[in-house]
Structure formats: structure tokens, C-alpha cells
Amino acid sequence: MRLNRKKILDFFKKSESRATLILNDKSKASNTIKDALGKAITNKGELEGVWGKMVLLFGVAKDYVNGDYTEIPKRSIVAILGGLIYFLSPLDVVPDFVPILGFIDDIFILNLVYKQVIKDLEKYKAWKDAQIKFIDNVDGSATT
């Protein structure tokens, strides 16, 4: 099966447009992320090749919407949320219920988004690691 890249990218652009609107409503954005995470966990086996990337995308999206991490350009968070919206849609270019092939277009989009925002994700990961170290240090010093 050959993927129609133009069709996939056109569908993704629509997902990014929806992401721009959803970002204006913290509750909708949070629910979208939660729903996409639930779908990802349910289908983790089929997403094994992109699982680590997805965890990072979910993390930055969640932290951005919660207001914990805002040091990411708006265009990057729109692309990330757009990718999650695309992933969440069961009727995208290759419907998710098609055995074996259902997530091929989703994986393509998620990899594309990851590559687009990789520098922003590296900064986020450094920030997140620093947060964890800080909490570990606070917890460690509280017990000694």
C-alpha cells in the first residue's frame, strides 16, 4: 500500500487548524491530550517504534496546557497538538481500524512533528530533567 503524502499532509494541516482553536480552551486542550494518551496506551504495541517520541510529545503538550512549561514557540505546540489530533482521529487518511496498516499514517505524522520540533523537545527534556533532579534533591534533603 502506497501512502498519499499530499492527502496525509492536507489532513494534518486541518488538524493543526483545529489545534489552534483548541489551544484557546484549556479544558478542551487537556481533554484532547488525555484522549490521545488513552488511545496511545490502548494501542501501544502498534506504536512501539514511536512510543518514546510520543511520551515526550504528550509530556510537553500536557505541561504547556497546564502552564508548567511555556518556553516553547506557539507554532511548535500547535504542530504537536495537531499531531495528537491527527492521531486521535479514527477516520484519517488510513482509518485506524484497518488491521496492521491503520496507524501507518499516524506514525508518519508523529515522526514528522517530532522532527519539526526536535530542538524544542530537547530544551523541554532538559527542563523536565532539571525539575526531576530538583524534586529528588528536595526529597533527599528532607529525609537527611
Rank of each mutant, 00 (worst) to 15 (best):
N43E: 15
G83L: 05
K13H: 04
W127E: 01
N66G: 10
V78G: 02
V94P: 04
L21R: 15
V50C: 07
K28N: 13
L121Y: 02
R5I: 14
E16R: 11
E71G: 04
I135W: 08
K13E: 08
R18G: 01
R2E: 13
V78C: 07
D139H: 05
A61F: 08
E46T: 10
K34S: 12
G45Y: 13
D106N: 15
G140M: 08
I77R: 03
T70H: 07
N66K: 15
E122W: 05
K128F: 06
G49Y: 12
Y64F: 13
Q116G: 00
A142T: 07
I132A: 01
G102F: 04
T143G: 06
I132C: 00
V117C: 04
N31C: 10
K123P: 00
D96I: 11
L88A: 09
D105Y: 03
V50N: 07
G49E: 14
I22N: 10
S17C: 07
E46W: 08
D35S: 14
L91C: 09
V55E: 15
D106H: 10
D139E: 11
K74T: 05
L47N: 03
N4D: 14
R5P: 00
A36C: 11
L47C: 08
I135C: 00
L21A: 12
V78I: 14
L23V: 12
V98A: 02
I8M: 05
K53A: 12
A40D: 10
G140C: 02
D129I: 05
G102D: 04
F87R: 11
L3A: 05
S141Y: 08
V65R: 06
P73N: 02
R18D: 03
V94L: 05
I85S: 10
T20F: 08
V93R: 01
K119M: 04
I109N: 01
A19L: 03
D139T: 08
A61W: 10
I135K: 07
D63W: 07
K26H: 07
D136K: 01
V50Y: 04
N137T: 01
M54W: 13
K13M: 03
M1N: 06
S27H: 15
Q131L: 04
F11L: 04
V117Q: 06
A126F: 05
F103V: 07
I107L: 10
F97V: 13
K62Q: 15
S27E: 15
L56C: 08
T20Y: 06
I104Q: 14
P99C: 07
Y64Q: 02
D129R: 05
D106C: 14
R75N: 12
G102T: 02
A40C: 13
V65L: 05
S141E: 11
L121Q: 00
L110Y: 12
V94W: 01
L81D: 09
G140T: 06
K62Y: 12
I72Y: 03
L110V: 11
K53N: 13
R75L: 01
V50L: 07
G140P: 00
S89E: 13
E71W: 05
G83T: 11
F134M: 09
L57W: 09
M1F: 05
V78N: 04
I33L: 12
A79M: 08
V113W: 07
D129N: 09
T144L: 11
K53S: 12
G67A: 08
D129M: 05
